[in-house]
Amino acid sequence: MKPPPFTYCDPESVDEAVALKSEYGSDSLVLAGGQSLLPMLNMRLARPEVLIDINKIGDLQRIERWDDILEVGAGVRQYELEDHQLVGELVPLLPEATGYIGHIECRHRGTVGGSLAHAHSAAELPCTAVALDATVVVRGPSGIRTIEARDFFQGRMTTALEPEEVLVAVRYPVTPQAAGHGFVEVARRAGDFALAGAAAVVNLGEDGCFTSVSVGVSSISDTPVRASAVESALIGEAPTENNIARAAEEIVPSVTAADDLHATHDYRRHLASVVVRRAITAAVARAHERRNGT
């Protein structure tokens, strides 16, 4: 299991990377953290003519806040999110979800942009981006383009990224102070691809009822799924166990994943509602904690 031959390029600027992508398009692949691409190269499931290593591009490694946006560069390593003070304060779902990605050795190399561009439906960051209404920032020959996360993931490991574009950052709206978040994932072994996972952020009004609910669900379809039906079933409702459980069932029709070695379709239909219920329940508990100042 050794990588096939390729031409290796390690540009130091986004411009250069975009120029390479423009020239080689789908004959080239971008190497970010390599935690998915290197296995594919080693198994020769990927055979790019040109490998564009973006690890030397300093511009991609920034974490910044402006206004109500937290912008995370595509090259930021996943582990950096885990104890990053700003990230924890502004988008607390992010570090929590990141802790579920593989094992620490993977998170030391794996990047934020790499996970989004790889777009595995079981992955944590795509699911979280969908739940958080994040915006993906890409650069192509004609400049910057932004894509809503829910439009970015288009199919099984396919995204709206054009062959000549490079994913440069992701912008997360800052989570309101009073909001609660929850992340739940079920896998055969801890660290494996999720059999199903859910990321939730909720806001409760003065009357204690849901004023907003955002839920992203992983591994039930070709792409991460935004659980819109669940969300609308809960808006204005009280966060009771029954209400949450009933609303969580609304995810079931979105489950399209076929049987595989690790889970059946029926199991995923069931599990989807379980993880959604649990993620919302955890988010509600956090929202209550915040309100009570604990």
Partner: peptide, 11 residues
């Protein structure tokens, strides 16, 4: 800690 099978020597 990193998996050295998932990095290239040039990196």
């Amino acid at each position: 800690s990193v998996r050295s099978c998932l990095m290239l020597a040039v990196q």
